[in-house]
């Protein structure tokens, strides 16, 4: 796998006239866990969709693996939506076989081993699974893809604390963070504090701070939660 890279230069995204993102530039290079942190409505989702090639910037450039992004970037990017995005008529088994056929980078073995660990019923239709299990299954699909870039939009939001902990564990266990670049958004910093290598703070569609998490702790002598409170105030 090539070294993962995400590159944004003067990226602005407007919906009608309303700007959702304003003049964002940064470059993320190398594997690791990158957290996009900010309140709801700060532009996190828009940013991640732009990176995943599912939106076009109104101006500026978004490149992943040195190529401008489009829907076709999905061969390098696994995107985990915050929505219930699975086909409800499939079973977990059908879902995994579907992905195995459709995505050459998909590891069926990895998917099934995660499923076994989660004790999911592979024959049950997805629409009959609990919300937590649907979230887990969605994650299994994203984590089974051996692609350089993983984009996860609010993987923890709207779930019970226990499920959230479980999901974090699943990500840590199965994301190949020594090779993959995992970028995830959340507004609950405390929960992911210890998992982040790198943070990107967002406010009102702007990127206000982008730094290595340990460097921030060292420099400021305070937690990311405290830093977030400081910079978002």
């Amino acid at each position: 796998m090539n070294e993962p890279e995400i590159y944004l230069k003067n990226v602005t995204k407007k919906y009608l006239r309303q700007p959702a993102l304003e003049n964002i530039s940064f470059q993320l290079k190398g594997s690791g866990v990158y957290g996009v942190l900010g309140e709801n409505g700060s532009g996190k989702t828009t940013l991640l969709k732009l990176i995943a090639g599912l939106l076009r910037p109104s101006s500026g450039t978004v490149k992943v693996m040195h190529r401008p992004v489009s829907r076709l970037s999905s061969k390098d990017i696994a995107y985990l939506s915050d929505a219930d995005s699975l086909y409800s008529f499939q079973s977990a088994q059908q879902l995994i076989h579907f992905w195995e056929k459709v995505a050459p980078d998909f590891s069926k073995d990895k998917a099934f081993s995660m499923i076994r660990e989660l004790n999911l019923d592979v024959n049950m239709k997805i629409k009959n699974l609990s919300k937590g299990n649907r979230a887990r299954l969605k994650l299994v699909i994203a984590l089974s893809r051996q692609v350089p870039v993983l984009v996860m939009d609010e993987p923890l939001s709207g779930l019970d604390p226990l499920v959230r902990e479980d999901i974090l564990k699943l990500i840590v266990m199965n994301a190949d963070v020594e090779q993959q670049l995992l970028i995830l958004s959340t507004h609950e910093v405390s929960e992911v504090e210890a998992f982040l290598d790198h943070v990107i703070f967002m406010k009102d569609g702007k990127c206000i701070l982008e730094e290595n998490a340990e460097v921030l702790r060292e420099q400021k002598g305070q937690s990311l939660v405290a830093t977030m409170r400081e910079v978002l105030a």
């Binding site: 829907r71 999905s74 939506s81 980078d105």
Partner: peptide, 15 residues
């Protein structure tokens, strides 16, 4: 409408 487009659009397959 059912948000499966998030997955459909991310399938690593030509349009």
């Amino acid at each position: 409408k059912e948000n499966t487009s998030h997955l459909w659009m991310n399938l690593p397959v030509k349009g």
